[in-house]
Design a protein around this nucleic acid. Structure first.
Length: 489
RNA sequence: GGCGCCAUCGUCUAGAGGCCCAGGACGCCGCCCUUUCAAGGCGGAGAUCGCGGGUUCGAAUCCCGCUGGCGCUACCA
């Protein structure tokens, strides 16, 4: 059997990490079995439709490196891949159901439905459609009212009053439901658009989808779907309900927990490879110890039977750690280009663009093992690009020279002399000279170093000092140290 | 209220009857390395496997009940 999976997002907002994780699993499954990965737009909710979000869907997929074989901007043999362009197919399916007696027109008004539910809530009854239009008499009456008010109708499924249906979920195993608790759900809305339960089944069938992956919040609607598959005489595909991604408080991941959009992570400096690896590990594992997994390895080993059932909290600390691992492992040229790109956008406007790639290439080895998020690149290396350094005067003396500004200034003045007299300008020579100076002056080397560090970089935490000074060049170092003595007053 | 899903260290997980008085990872705490910060190395704390009953010679693993968390209950997906 050909494995064909699909990612079927609704263009209603920014791509959520939970959705993209589903897309990732869909993609992995398709690639693992050499099948196709399809992207279909489920835009049947006109009220929540946000046109711009369509681009976001493609963009998020591309960012993560999930390429699709059909759909969206690519088309394919089973198009169109946008539900709003497939309305006739849903209408035909609804008509068939109507003709078979598996569905009926419902002319009840929203107001009546609302009132009905309010009453049911007051009586502590489960909210369910009261099936007024299920029989001819009630329907005729409702239809007269609707016609008088100029309203249209919806199409509802005629759910059997009793019986059981069950699904063998690929992850959860057998799931059985009692039909007596299922009401007559809507298939076609009065605007002619289908509801998810009808649309996805018609489309999956038409597009030959073999595996359906979705969040487990869909489990409660499985019985309705089963009924539709049966009534339409469509074979039920492999269905897998994925565990959801939770926020730190155990509730569903939402804005108040921090970032939910994949773009927020991208903009915070997370690498797509790290995100891919991390997301691939929420709800799935390779074995009892492997954490860092290449795309190839993921594709080679991903199967549904290693997906867990329990929901997972989004562990951002682990994502951040993993991002650091990927930064450290990045090939040099790619690393330099990535760092440069983040410097281009993060450095103050006074720094000429594009940033000098040659300089970045020299800096990169110094900071790569310190950077976890790409946004930190600027913090670690801005002093290489800036002319004038701005930093709190108190940072200079630090703890060692807390109330000994004069001593600190004297040490810096000596450092200028010492460094100016150096025959060569290499990190080893700089270090040796400064160590010698500290020894001569009877001060701790570390104390002198931190004095020079702040003077030269404007920061207390920096890449290795001597290598940095070498890259900076003697002129700029001496000017900065002199400026620092002034700051010490 | 009804229906349903889930349940192993704080978190992500390994575990499909004996290999487990439970392994790995993140985080945390020490020590080492060290010019700061990282990275790295070593070590540590951390789970009576939600609780209670069974089944079995033997259960984290099977069954039942309970509890808890979460979800669904729209002319949303």
């Amino acid at each position: 059997m050909d494995v064909r999976t699909r990612y079927a997002p609704s263009p209603t907002g920014v791509p959520h990490v939970g959705n993209i994780r589903t897309a990732l699993f869909d993609w992995l499954l398709a690639r693992h079995f050499g099948g196709q990965f399809i992207v279909r737009l489920e835009d049947t909710d006109r009220a929540r439709f946000i046109p711009e979000s369509v681009d976001g869907i493609a963009e998020s997929l591309r960012w993560l490196g999930l390429d699709w074989d059909e759909g969206l901007d690519r088309g394919g043999p089973y198009g169109p891949y946008t539900q709003s362009e497939r309305l006739p197919m849903y209408r035909a399916a609804a008509d068939r159901l109507l003709g078979q007696g598996d569905a009926y027109e419902c002319w009840c008004s929203s107001e009546r439905l609302d009132a009905m539910r309010a009453e049911q809530a007051r009586l502590k009854q489960p909210p369910r459609y009261d099936r007024r239009c299920r029989e001819d008499a009630g329907r005729a009456e409702a239809r007269r009212e609707a016609t008088a008010e100029g309203r249209g109708c919806v199409v509802r499924f005629r759910t059997p009053l009793e019986g059981r249906v069950s699904l063998d979920d690929a992850i959860h195993g057998p799931l059985t439901f009692d039909l007596s608790t299922i009401d007559d759900f809507i298939l076609l809305k009065s605007d002619g658009f289908p509801v998810y339960a009808l649309a996805y089944i018609v489309d999956d069938d038409a597009m030959r989808i073999s595996h359906v992956l979705r969040g487990d919040e869909w489990i409660p609607s499985v019985p309705r779907h089963l009924l539709v598959y049966r009534a339409l005489d469509v074979a039920v595909p492999v269905i897998a309900h994925l565990p959801r991604i939770l926020g730190p408080d155990g509730a569903k991941l939402s804005k108040r927990h921090g970032a939910t959009s994949v773009f927020e992570y991208r903009d915070q400096g997370y690498l797509p490879d790290a995100m891919f690896n991390f997301l691939g590990l929420v709800g799935w594992s390779l074995d009892d110890k492997t954490e860092i997994i290449s795309r190839e390895q993921f594709v080679a080993s991903f199967t549904l039977d290693r997906v867990v059932r329990n929901p997972a909290m989004f562990n951002i600390d682990k994502l951040t750690w993993m991002n650091g691992v990927y930064v450290r492992d990045m090939p040099e040229p790619e690393l330099v280009e990535t760092f440069a790109a983040w410097l281009d956008r993060g450095l103050p406007p006074s720094v000429p663009r594009p940033v000098d790639r040659g300089l970045v290439a020299r800096i990169a080895p110094l900071i790569r093992e310190r950077v976890k998020l790409l946004t930190e690149v600027v913090d670690y290396s801005d002093f290489f690009f800036l002319d004038a350094l701005e930093y709190p005067a108190d940072d200079l003396p630090g703890k060692a020279f807390a109330s000994k500004a004069a001593e600190a200034a004297a040490a810096l003045r000596r450092a200028v002399e010492v460094l100016a007299a150096l025959p060569g300008w290499t990190d080893d020579a700089i270090e040796a000279a400064l160590r010698l100076q500290a020894a001569d002056d009877g001060m701790k080397a570390g104390d002198l170093f931190s004095l020079v560090r702040v003077a030269v970089t404007g920061r207390r935490v920096t890449p290795p000092l001597f290598e940095s000074m070498e890259i900076l060049g003697r002129e700029r170092c001496l000017v900065r140290i002199e400026a620092a003595t002034g700051k010490l007053g």
